[in-house]
Design a protein around this nucleic acid. Structure first.
Length: 115
DNA sequence: CATATGACGACAA
DNA sequence: ATTGTCGCCATAT
């Protein structure tokens, strides 16, 4: 779903959002799993800050040791997010969007097909 | 239309 | 903290 990708696109660097959070903002109340599905089927050319999406528990979605896991944790750390044991301190890094911020939509215009 | 499937979430033991 | 269940929603078959 476009809404989901757009939402993820708006997560600012240095912060993270849970699948459920992304789903809600995207308009799908309990669609955490849907977000997961969407991410796992991302078009290869689609560039999104997918690494900023983690579980509500603060843990990275991939199993420790996998390439994706390393990739994600690495990307997060580059952005200044402290990842310890595959976990992130949600209290500190959880993205808390403001309306202005959302309405601004500084992202690309790949979502402009809204009816 | 009926099932199966996910990079999940909340909760009980 | 860890593990198992069940619920959830859009897609895929």
């Amino acid at each position: 779903m476009q809404r989901i990708r757009t939402t993820i696109c708006e997560i600012p660097s240095g912060f993270v959002a849970s699948y459920g959070q992304v789903a809600e903002i995207a308009g799908i109340a309990r669609g955490a799993r849907q977000v997961a599905y969407t991410l796992s089927h991302l078009p290869p050319d689609q560039v999104l800050p997918w690494h900023r999406v983690i579980k509500a528990s603060g843990k990275i979605a991939f199993a420790e040791g996998t390439e994706n896991f390393d990739d994600q944790s690495k990307r997060l750390m580059i952005e200044g997010v402290v990842v310890r044991n595959g976990k992130v301190d949600m209290k500190q890094y959880r993205w808390q969007p403001d309306l202005d911020e959302l309405l601004w939509k500084p992202c690309s215009s790949w979502d402009q097909k809204t009816p």
